[in-house]
């Protein structure tokens, strides 16, 4: 917002035009008539737009439904994706109320440019797991087993939190792993295993849980070295700040903790 920050922001703005187009379309829901802060007299109304890390898809969708039940007249729309892509979208002016990222680094992309209202707070933590095809036919038992010749392993791209965490874990284990592909978000990596195109992927344990019996999860020791904090923040240009506040409150409430805990997230 400051003048001095104007130039670099403009260049990002142009650069990210494509991302905005995509994100703006996905977040393109008309704000309700009561979306101005003053008119919200008793409880939140209108549409809340939440940008959330791909790994939050299942639990946040559940929380969104709860929110709509508890506050009739509200509607929660989500845009799930790689945290870095979402951050770029917010930076480029995508109309979002809340941002929940899968790493402090991607949240910083937003807060450093003054797009967050107040400071973000960590609401959950997440650990990595190896996802293998059902039955674990290759007998994968550790991170090192992923380097077996002929094994097709996919990782998240290192610009995405799950990819950065995977690199940290691999670094801690001193393992050099050449994957078949660097996927653009965690769900992309998981899907390749679900379709049996890859033998294994390094993803979050929450994703393994959400995939049910389509993949099998394998814990590995080095995952303790790469635990991701998930920060959540209200956004500066939120079209509907009052409802956004109420949604963040729900996420942090005991009820929200329960839903997130059931999905496999760890307490902060």
């Amino acid at each position: 917002m400051t003048r001095s920050a104007h130039r670099p922001r403009r260049s990002r703005r142009i650069a990210g035009a494509g991302a905005v187009a995509v994100l703006a379309l996905s977040a393109c829901s008309a704000p309700g008539p009561d979306s101005s802060p003053g008119s919200a007299t008793d409880g939140p109304t209108g549409t809340v737009t939440v940008f959330a890390a791909a790994s939050l898809r299942e639990s946040f969708t559940t929380l969104g439904e709860r929110f709509e039940e508890e506050h009739p007249g509200t509607e929660v729309t989500f845009s799930f994706g790689g945290s870095d892509a979402l951050a770029a979208g917010i930076d480029n002016g995508a109309p979002a109320d809340v941002f929940a990222a899968a790493s402090p680094r991607t949240m910083e992309l937003v807060t450093d440019r003054g797009h967050a209202a107040g400071s973000p707070s960590t609401f959950v933590r997440n650990r990595l797991q190896i996802a293998t095809v059902p039955g674990n036919p290759h007998g994968i038992d550790s991170l090192e087993d992923l380097t077996a010749p002929g094994l097709k392993v996919v990782l998240c791209d290192r610009t995405v939190p799950c990819g950065a965490a995977a690199q940290t874990a691999l670094g801690a284990a001193r393992i050099a792993l050449t994957p078949a592909s660097y996927e653009q978000d965690v769900k992309g990596a998981l899907t390749k295993v679900e379709l049996k195109e890859a033998d294994a992927a390094v993803v979050y344990r929450t994703d393994v849980k959400a995939a049910g019996d389509k993949v099998e999860g394998v814990e590995f020791r080095e995952s303790a070295e790469a635990v991701n904090d998930y920060p959540i923040a209200l956004l500066d240009n939120a079209p509907n700040p009052s409802a956004a506040k109420a949604f963040v409150a729900l996420v942090k409430s005991p009820e929200g903790r329960k839903v997130l805990g059931e999905a496999g997230f760890l307490r902060p």
């Binding site: 650069a15 991302a19 870095d84 610009t159 994957p179 592909s181 660097y182 653009q184």
Partner: peptide
Amino acid sequence: FAGNFPGRTQTMPLAVYLALQNDPA
């Protein structure tokens, strides 16, 4: 279909898309 791996399947459009997210220049 082919995923994203530098030198093997990362073509220019993929490189542009991924670079946009952390290195717009």
